[in-house]
Design a protein around this nucleic acid. Structure first.
Length: 474
RNA sequence: GGCCCCAUCGUCUAACGGUUAGGACGGCAGGUUCUCAUCCUGCAAAUCGGGGUUCGAUUCCCCGUGGGGUCACCA
């Protein structure tokens, strides 16, 4: 049996679309699971869409997603001779023919057909051109393309996710295979390359399913064995149309910029249209590879739910060790705050990670740990107490904090113990003590607990902040 | 419009033809708690409609309806 090979052709714009990411992931999973190879191919046969640096950008993104390429990137624009020869072969065999029709004529033809509510198809005006006339016009330098000569009958194929799909050949247009500029169209290039590169499984988006019959014809004409086809359901906007810009972010780079983790994005996207079997939501890359199965693919489109992605991202953040999180959060710090000491950043991550859903959340979180926050004196007062009590409690707790040794501040747990013991000993109200203390340290209505804040800030700063709060109440 | 594809809670999904139709996100209500978040518990929430086949249909078939994709010298 042939070695399993899958391939991935990103769109040549340089950005990786969310849908493309899933396609890449599935191809990668499938290849990995079967000990096969994952091939990267750049389909840059449209010169008008050329983007400088697109390939480098794509490779960077794939690398970030830890999708390892086994072969390639193969670049189609460097293989023009191969496609030309194949097109020529079809012309000689009578399966394709030269067409000299101008774009203007074709547009006009289409317009007429459209108003007449006819299907828009090429009228085969050039099909009957005599061989010597064709040669004469080519010699004269007339621009021409090569078109498929669609035969009568019907074409069908087996799709791994949809089953048998059949289409009448009369529905097919005499598709252009080789353009006037000598570049192949997608249809020619994909068939030739998939065969030459030994691709055994074609896993791609559903938007391609209607062009498969054309490809089948090409495979037959060339005498190539068919690969296995698996067409994935589309990823949808909330209104159920094909996921597109305009209704939100569609490139994985957009999500990186927002502060999503590569592994969360990969995990989430993998589960759109595929279910490994259990009731779990969080899967490691290895688990996904092990569970991946073409038979487990869904047939219907899936709405991309940013909300659930946000939740999943939070899950991943929460489960990251503090030192790891600190590393990954670092790029989001403002330039001025770039000198946040590593140890402080790790502590902040440790106490804040259950409150984060994006890496970029660190930007809103970090200031209060770097500088004494503004405090509204009224906020210092616990709901069942008054200013006098707040002042009293702050003074008391300051005294106790001051009496602590450095070891107490070495873990949040020890600080917490100390506070609890203090409250118990004096028979104080928990809220009466902890609320003003927490506000004194954070200035915020909502924040981590006072013991966590004190641990992050350290003894000296903790006392300084308590003193500051006290001065506001006095 | 032609052709192709699809159809379970709002969303992602599970369910050998036999289940009180399960889980997750979100929502709501509680619990833990100094606050928020985390965590835990509970609640509401779905088989598009109509015909068949069958002892029995979410599941198989047909029709309808709805949605999507595609109809380039773009991929």
């Amino acid at each position: 049996m042939d070695k399993i090979k899958t391939r991935f052709p990103p769109s040549p714009t340089g950005f990786l679309h969310i849908g493309s990411l899933r396609t890449a992931l599935y191809n990668y999973y499938f290849a990995r699971k079967h000990g096969g190879a994952f091939v990267l191919r750049i389909e840059d046969t449209d010169r008008s869409r050329y983007v400088e640096g697109a390939v480098e950008s794509l490779l960077r993104t794939l690398k970030r997603m830890e999708i390892d390429v086994d072969e390639g990137p193969f670049v189609q624009s460097e293989r023009l001779e191969i496609y030309r020869a194949h097109a020529q072969q079809l012309v000689q065999a009578g399966h394709a023919y030269r067409c000299f029709c101008s774009k203007e004529r074709l547009e006009e033809l289409r317009a007429v057909q459209q108003t007449a509510k006819q299907p828009t198809k090429y009228d085969r005006a050039c099909l009957t051109l005599a061989t010597d006339e064709v040669e004469a016009r080519i010699a004269r330098g007339d621009a021409s393309v090569v078109r498929m000569r669609i035969p009568e009958g019907e074409t069908s194929f087996e799709d791994e996710v949809r089953g048998r799909v059949t289409i009448q050949n009369k529905e097919l247009d005499d598709q252009v295979l080789l353009k006037a500029d000598g570049f192949p169209t997608y249809h020619l290039a994909v068939v030739v390359d998939d065969h030459l590169m030994g691709i055994t499984h074609v896993i791609r988006g559903e938007e391609w399913i209607s062009s498969v019959p054309k490809h089948i014809l090409l495979y037959q004409w060339f005498g190539f064995p068919l690969p296995v086809f698996a067409h994935l359901p589309l990823i949808l906007n909330p209104d159920r149309s094909k996921l597109s810009k305009r209704q939100g972010d569609v490139s994985v780079e957009d999500y990186f910029e927002k502060g999503f983790l590569e592994e969360a994005l990969g995990n989430y996207v993998s589960l759109l249209g595929f279910n490994p079997g259990g009731d779990r939501e969080i899967y490691s890359r290895e688990e996904l590879i092990a569970a991946f199965d073409l038979k487990k693919l869904n047939k219907s489109g899936a709405v991309f739910d940013v909300n659930k992605l946000l939740w999943m991202n939070g899950q991943y953040l929460k489960n990251l060790p503090a030192d790891e999180l600190a590393l990954r959060v670092r790029p989001w710090l403002e330039h001025g705050a770039g000198d946040v000491p590593e140890q402080l950043l790790q502590k902040v991550c440790d106490v804040e990670k259950t409150r984060m859903s994006l890496l970029s959340d660190i930007r809103n979180i970090i200031p209060m740990y770097l500088h004494q926050p503004d405090i509204s004196p009224d906020l210092l007062v616990w709901k069942t107490a008054d200013r006098e009590d707040a002042l009293l409690q702050l003074k008391g707790v300051r005294e106790r904090m001051d009496a602590c040794d450095d070891k107490t501040f070495s873990t949040p747990g020890l600080v917490e113990e100390t506070l609890k013991r203090y409250i118990e000993e004096r028979n104080l109200g928990t809220g009466n003590v902890l609320w003003p203390l927490r506000v004194a340290l954070s200035g915020a209505k909502r924040s981590p607990g006072p013991h966590e804040l004190a641990w992050v800030l350290g003894k000296e700063e903790t006392i300084r902040r308590i003193d500051h709060a006290t001065s506001l109440l006095a």
